[in-house]
């Protein structure tokens, strides 16, 4: 378990961050904490990785949905951190990430899993708990929306 953690924890933090979590480390730690509790029931290492990825997506989704209704405990200084990141990013990256952040959550999730984690459609579907056809549709619509949002900027 600790080997999986060492190998994958940063990836999970980054995944939560890219999905728009307000506290990515908190999400990733909670995902691993749940994995530790469940480890005896998991088949193998691959199942553990799939579980922790899926849990991370689910936690971010729930957290964001919860925040939509009840914006709670926004960490002080979050904007400052974002601004700092923004300064360090290239202008075109910043514009693209802003457009990505404005997408509907599931589109954003599908796109991040496909284009950052490079998961297949089937793996993305398993992680999101939807059908591969839905992934196809979410990615396609997401890319279309990004393209339109960036028209004239690329």
């Amino acid at each position: 378990m600790s080997a999986l953690f060492r190998a994958r924890y940063p990836e999970l933090v980054r995944l939560a961050d890219l999905l728009g979590a307000d506290d990515p480390e908190d999400i990733a730690q909670e995902a691993f904490a749940r994995l530790i509790r469940k480890q005896e029931t998991l088949r193998d290492q691959d199942a553990a990785l799939a579980y922790v990825r899926s849990t991370t997506c689910n936690l971010v989704r729930n957290r964001r949905r919860h925040l939509r209704v009840a914006r709670l405990r926004t960490p002080a200084g979050q904007d400052e951190v974002s601004s700092e990141h923004a300064v360090m990013l290239r202008e075109d990256h910043r514009e693209l990430l802003a457009a990505l952040a404005a997408l509907a959550p599931r589109r954003r999730e599908a796109i991040v899993l496909r284009y950052w984690l490079e998961l297949s459609e089937r793996e993305t579907a398993a992680t999101m708990g939807v059908s591969p056809g839905t992934v196809k549709s979410l990615v396609s619509r997401g890319l279309d929306a990004l393209g339109k949002a960036l028209e004239g900027k690329l």
């Binding site: 990256h93 693209l96 890319l143």
Partner: peptide, 22 residues
């Protein structure tokens, strides 16, 4: 857009700090 996405996501991900006591 897909190429740009991969670049931008990788650039953004590289900036996520990680807690050593995680």
């Amino acid at each position: 857009v897909e190429d740009r996405l991969r670049e931008a996501l990788a650039a953004r991900a590289a900036q996520s700090p990680v807690d050593p006591d995680a």
